Amino acid sequence: MTFPIRTPDDLHIEKRDLKFGRDDAPPRWWHSNDPGRTAFFNALSSTFPVGEKFFMTAVRHYRDGTAEPLRSQIDDFLYQESMHSREHVVFNRQAQDAGFDIASAEDRARRTIAWAKRRSPIQQLAGTCALEHFTATLAHDALANPEHLGGASNEARRMWQWHAIEEIEHKAVAFDTYLHATRTMTPFRRWLKRSVVMILTSLRFHYVIFRNTADLLRQDGRNDWATWKGLLAWLYGRKGLMRAMGLSIFTYIKPGFHPWEIDDRSLLKDALRLLEAGKPKEMAA
């Protein structure tokens, strides 16, 4: 049994080798001069290098059994994720240069990935699908609502915009690989596995991100109710990033779901224009 690839035919998963933040270090509170927003994004970034290597391993495990166009899409996915990992290593180093100790955050991410690696390959792939859905949802909302990154320093904003663009471009690759890998399962078993893994992954994701955020806020003496009240209102308010992500879980566990039910192609075009417009003049020339 094979599944048709539902990724739009005219979508190209672009291989971009872009570098950010090599010249000017961002301020300590690089997002809106706000310790809460800065801590949240730094906490998220601290998980990416180890997390994206895990995604690459989980998807690569099934590559050789796939046919075109999925096999080429997997190769493009692997390239993009390797670039994301590299740039977040740099971003995390900048957070350290600004005075943050992110060792505990990185260690928490490593322990979570070590736990995930003890699961079967198909469970690891299902976990990757769940986390790719989260990142694609966060990416969509970050690009659709410019205020989410509007207060960030220029290079940090461009880096997160670039990451968001590519998360949308390859948002269906892990999912299509999962459909291929589970092609001999019954539809119910395939749905049940990805849904259960999504729920467990969601719980762990929230725990890791908010523990990491608390660790970073504590270093600023801001791990208090006033800071958390403002941050949670920003994250879970009517247009909040985490509100959108939480609601997207219900979309994901719907039988028959596919990531390209949400067509982001027009959003991608607009975001790419913004990314290009934000280049320093010497780079744009």
Score class of each variant (00 low, 15 high):
P27G: 12
S248E: 11
A139V: 06
Y178H: 04
A109K: 00
W162K: 01
A116L: 14
R189C: 12
A130K: 00
M56Q: 15
T66C: 08
W30A: 11
A43C: 06
R93D: 15
L149T: 06
N145Q: 14
A126R: 03
H140N: 07
M198G: 05
A164I: 06
L179E: 04
L247I: 07
G51K: 01
I253N: 07
H258I: 02
G151W: 05
W228M: 03
D76N: 11
T137W: 09
R204G: 04
K229G: 13
G99I: 01
G99L: 02
Y79P: 10
R93G: 14
K171M: 15
G99T: 01
T213H: 12
P259C: 10
E106Q: 14
F41E: 02
V197G: 07
I209Q: 15
I5R: 15
F20C: 07
S266W: 03
E282A: 11
R238K: 15
H84D: 10
I5W: 12
R222N: 00
Y178L: 03
W225I: 12
P49R: 01
E81T: 10
E106S: 02
A181V: 03
I199E: 03
W30K: 03
A130Y: 00
L241Q: 11
E81F: 13
G51P: 00
P255M: 02
W260A: 04
A214N: 05
P26I: 12
V50A: 09
A67K: 09
T47N: 00
R6L: 14
A126L: 08
T184E: 13
D23C: 08
L149F: 10
P69M: 06
F55C: 12
I102A: 04
T186D: 14
I209R: 14
D75I: 09
A98M: 06
A43N: 03
Q219K: 03
Q123N: 08
M245P: 04
D76H: 11
M56F: 05
I165L: 04
Q94F: 01
D220Q: 04
A136V: 12
F55P: 13
T128E: 00
L138H: 01
I249Q: 06
F250R: 10
E147W: 12
S195V: 07
G256L: 01
G221A: 02
D97Y: 04
E106F: 00
D101P: 07
E68Y: 06
H180F: 15
I262T: 09
R111G: 03
Q96I: 09
A43M: 04
N212W: 10
H61L: 02
M56C: 12
P4K: 14
T2M: 07
Q219Y: 02
R22D: 14
K229F: 14
F250Y: 10
W191E: 06
L235P: 06
P4F: 13
A58Q: 02
F100G: 01
R273E: 14
P49W: 02
D141W: 12
N154W: 11
D220V: 00
M198H: 08
G246N: 15
H206Y: 15
D75G: 09
S104P: 04
R93T: 09
L203V: 15
L138R: 00
T2C: 05
